[in-house]
Amino acid sequence: MRIPALVLRDGERKQLESWVRSSSVRAGLAQRARIVLLAADGVSNTEIAERVGVSRPTVTGWRARYAKDGIDGLFDEQRSGRPRQVDRLKIIATTLRPPPQRLGVTHWSSRLLAQHLKTSNSTVAKAWREAGVQPWRSETFKFSTDPELIAKVTDVVGLYLAPPENAVVLCVDEKSQIQALDRTAPMLPMRPFVPAKRTHDYVRHGTTTLFAALDIATGTVTGICQPRHRHQEFLRFLKQVAKAYPDTDLHLVMDNYATHKRIEIRDWLADNPRIHVHFTPTSASWMNLVEVWFGIIERQAIHRGTFTSVSQLTGKIRGFINGWNDRAHPFVWTKTADQILTKAIRKTTSITDH
Rank of each mutant, 00 (worst) to 15 (best):
P4N: 09
A5Y: 05
E12V: 12
K14L: 07
Q15I: 13
Q15S: 07
L16W: 02
V20H: 00
V25R: 11
V25H: 02
R32T: 00
R32M: 02
V36T: 11
L37W: 06
D41Q: 11
S44N: 08
E47W: 09
E50I: 10
G53C: 02
S55V: 00
R56Q: 14
T60P: 00
T60G: 11
G61Q: 08
A64Q: 15
R65Q: 08
I71V: 15
D72W: 00
G73M: 04
F75W: 11
D76F: 00
V86W: 12
V86Y: 11
D87G: 08
L89H: 13
T94A: 08
T94Q: 11
T95D: 02
L103G: 06
T106M: 03
W108M: 04
S110K: 13
R111I: 10
A114F: 13
H116N: 05
V124K: 07
V124H: 07
W128L: 06
R129Q: 12
R129W: 01
R137V: 05
E139K: 14
F141G: 10
F141R: 15
K142V: 15
P147K: 01
L149I: 03
L149C: 02
V153H: 04
V156I: 14
Y160S: 10
P164Y: 09
P164T: 12
E165N: 14
N166P: 01
L170S: 09
V172T: 07
V172F: 04
E174G: 09
S176V: 06
Q177A: 12
I178L: 04
A180K: 03
A180C: 06
A185T: 10
R191E: 13
A196C: 09
T207S: 06
T209K: 07
A213N: 10
L214V: 10
D215G: 01
I216Y: 03
I216R: 04
T222A: 03
C225P: 00
Q226R: 15
P227S: 03
H231T: 15
Q232P: 00
F234M: 12
F237E: 08
P246D: 02
D247L: 03
T248Q: 15
L250D: 07
H251I: 11
L252D: 13
V253Q: 08
V253R: 08
V253W: 08
N256Q: 10
T259H: 04
R262M: 09
R262L: 06
I263W: 12
R266M: 13
R266F: 03
W268F: 10
W268E: 11
A270S: 14
P273T: 13
I275V: 15
H276E: 11
H278R: 10
P281Y: 00
P281T: 01
T282F: 02
W286K: 07
E298H: 13
R299H: 14
Q300R: 15
G305M: 07
S309N: 08
S311K: 10
Q312F: 04
L313G: 04
T314F: 01
F320N: 08
G323Y: 03
R327V: 14
H329D: 06
V332R: 12
W333D: 11
T334M: 05
K335C: 05
T336L: 09
A337Y: 06
L341K: 01
R346V: 07
T349V: 08
T349L: 12
S350G: 07
I351P: 00
H354S: 10
